[in-house]
Design a protein around this nucleic acid. Structure first.
Lengths: 160, 160
DNA sequence: CACTCATTTCAGAAAGTTGTGAAGTTAAGA
DNA sequence: TCTTAACTTCACAACTTTCTGAAATGAGTG
């Protein structure tokens, strides 16, 4: 233990990255994207290059490449390269979470649409049809209300 | 094609089961639980035995056993055995979905708690600390609002 | 109390997922 | 144009998850 204090602080940060990544994984995110996102959450600089992420997480550049591509695709991250720069900087979008959760409405929309096809297949007047209709209506309710909830959050934020 | 009409109706139902299971899987449910749940959604009788589920999905009893155990555990299904019966009947709980979605609040609660530990590790006054605080507050907002949203759905249901 | 049938458990096979190393591609700078 | 460094792609290996078959358990019935 030559430099105990700085080390233990770095260590605490590193631990948080893995801790949050684990919780995030349990909530449904894939492992490597969860770790990459977590590392970006925890960085003081606000952004990291792919190389820095690979070093921080002790994984190959290939693994980082796959993870950031996925995260950019689902809109949680953005890639920014300064003019005349040779490296990409990845950073978490400001409203990433809000959009991400709000976008769940499309998940519910898809479930509702699938159920609609089921109602036709099974007959709207049958017991199964009735059950499906109720389920569909609940999903449509969520698809409609989630974006409103995000909007409400933005307003509360704006006011303070 | 000896009996075209009945067959195509059965076939349509079977297709819906697989179609919905797929969408449900994309939304995060494991494959076999998704299929089992889907089969129960589509049944006219309102309930199925484990053997019936195995036949409908063309899988082993063991696979059904594992899937229903999981579904019962997360509260989407219930097991009902009539007195003096030798078989279990599985059925979808009436309010299963509402509870299931409402219970997501605990997911967000866990995320918020993990982030709280990160704020301590990284320092509340640092740039990363600020970013974490905002993220945490959003999760807490969701954890609080989701149950209210479900309550609102129940009220609308009751009236309309 | 033995028999039968539904369900569960468990070891192992099959399938699917994830991460690595190495080769390939792109773009900046000499 | 050549070199260099960052990043990406891809085939493969390691790991995990999922499902099956077989044996065990449990509950009703003769």
């Amino acid at each position: 233990m030559t430099t105990p204090e700085p080390q233990s602080s770095e260590e605490a940060a590193r631990r948080f990255v893995e801790d949050f990544a684990l919780v995030f994984t349990n909530a449904g995110m894939q492992r490597m994207p969860a770790r990459v996102f977590s590392a970006l959450l925890a960085t003081q600089k606000g952004s990291l290059t792919a190389t820095e992420i690979a070093e921080a997480l002790q994984v190959s550049p290939a693994a980082v490449s796959g993870a950031v591509r996925y995260l950019v695709q689902i809109g949680l991250l953005t890639k920014a390269r300064e003019p005349g720069e040779r490296v990409d900087h990845y950073l978490i979008l400001d409203d990433a979470w809000y959009e991400s959760v709000g976008r769940k409405d499309s998940t519910y929309q898809l479930l509702a649409e699938s159920i609609d096809r089921g109602i036709i297949a099974l007959g709207a007047q049958t017991p199964a049809g009735k059950r499906l209709e109720e389920t569909r209506d609940f999903f449509l309710f969520l698809a409609k209300q989630l974006p409103l909830l995000i909007e409400q959050w933005r307003r509360e934020r704006a006011q303070g």
